[in-house]
Nucleic acid binder design. Structure first.
Length: 362
DNA sequence: AAGTCGGGGGT
DNA sequence: ACCCCAGACTT
């Protein structure tokens, strides 16, 4: 249908309705009590692809640990990743650190203050740039996140697949047009996202108490559940991780993941990956030296199995614990180093590894 | 345009 | 089992 023909009518009601709704329904969240661009930025990066409930405790910890951007800039990256542990998408933490140093060292600590300047920073894309620009600096630029796609698709009856470039342009243009009507662009941006998160939810939206019900194309046609349109993602890939957990005298051999893969810069154990399940370590094509190491050590009777689901991979891991005799502790494979349990606690680790440690030694 | 990058929660 | 979440970056 030609939604643009109704746009003038709907937008005159839509924007003020949402702003009014927000005043009565907004949650009390810590980052809503500040206009400090550093805190706004911190919260927005933490909340990328992350629910408020999951991100909130991390935000509190980061603000406590690094009260200023200078302190974040000076932070040890390993410590920063340790603080980020469990949140996922660890490149966010690395980019956060890089941008903190850039702002501190190259911009004299002065945070970029416009949408276009913000966009140049590592880890700040179109959404986050708009969020910081409007929340911290009052710039009239529209945020378009998952909530906004859903709300606009439904209210305006837009059936374009939101994963396509064309749809992104459509939604951005509409959002830009709408925010021109806003009394306060920062409040309006907050309002439409909060509305999507609380009222216009993906499943079972609360249409009966909706302030724009009578102007919502989806509601009026009974198609709420079909919008927004989104192409299905590719099926998840199965991976099989075989870990050899070399141990000696209450220490364990770990290594930093440096390859271009999941969990970059986090720590795990000696790893061999296969395309197929291989329950027995003898079926693994290990280097001769590693095979010899296992043979001379004491292998735990039962390996520990664990599974980790990522958005795009299903990792099935099996951990073989090997206690090495004192004489062989200098013969670890390349990259592995010995760490005490206390040191391991402080290393940044994938949840898969943390869970294993808890299960096996916790 | 398609892939990659985490982990958790809801249905 | 599937979808979504205050997305960004690389290929």
């Amino acid at each position: 249908m030609d939604w643009q023909s109704d746009l003038n009518v709907i937008e005159a009601v839509f924007v003020p309705s949402l702003e009014g709704w927000y005043e009565h329904h907004k949650r009390d969240l810590p980052w809503r009590h500040t206009r400090n661009p550093y805190y706004i930025w911190l919260s927005e990066v933490i909340l990328q692809q992350t629910r408020v409930a999951q991100g909130k405790p991390y935000y509190e910890r980061f603000v406590d640990t690094y009260p200023t951007i200078e302190e974040l800039a000076r932070a040890d990256e390993k410590e920063l990743l340790r603080l980020w542990q469990g949140l996922g998408y660890y490149s966010r933490a690395r980019n956060l650190h890089q941008t903190a140093r850039y702002v501190t060292d190259q911009l004299a600590g002065k945070f970029p203050a416009t949408y276009h300047e913000l966009l140049k920073m590592k880890g700040i894309g179109v959404y986050t740039a708009a969020a910081i620009a409007s929340f911290a600096f009052g710039e009239r630029v529209a945020v378009v996140d998952g909530n906004v796609y859903r709300v606009l698709a439904r209210v305006f009856g837009i059936y374009e697949d939101i994963t396509t470039t064309g749809a992104k342009k459509t939604f951005a243009a509409l959002a830009t047009r709408l925010i021109q009507k806003a009394d306060n662009p920062a409040t309006y941006n907050q309002a439409i996202m909060e509305f999507g998160a609380i009222q216009c939810t993906p499943v079972a939206p609360d249409c009966l108490l909706c302030p724009v019900q009578q102007h919502c194309v989806a509601y009026l046609t009974g198609q709420q559940h079909r919008l927004p349109v989104k192409a299905k993602k590719a099926p998840v890939r199965d991976r099989y991780f075989h870990y050899l957990v070399f141990s000696n005298n209450n220490k364990m051999a770990m290594r930093e993941r440096t390859e271009r893969d999941v969990w970059q810069q986090l720590y795990d154990f000696y790893l061999l990956e296969t395309d197929e399940p291989k329950p027995n370590w003898r079926d693994l094509l290990l280097p001769d030296s590693v095979n010899e190491l296992v043979r001379q050590g004491v292998l735990a009777a039962t390996p520990v199995e664990a599974m980790q689901l990522l958005s795009h991979q299903r990792i099935r891991a099996i951990f073989h614990f090997v206690e090495l005799p004192d004489g062989l502790t200098e013969q670890l494979p390349e990259g592995l180093k010995w760490y005490s349990m206390a040191e391991i606690t402080d290393l940044p680790k994938p949840v898969l590894i943390t869970n294993y440690l808890e299960k096996a030694f916790g």
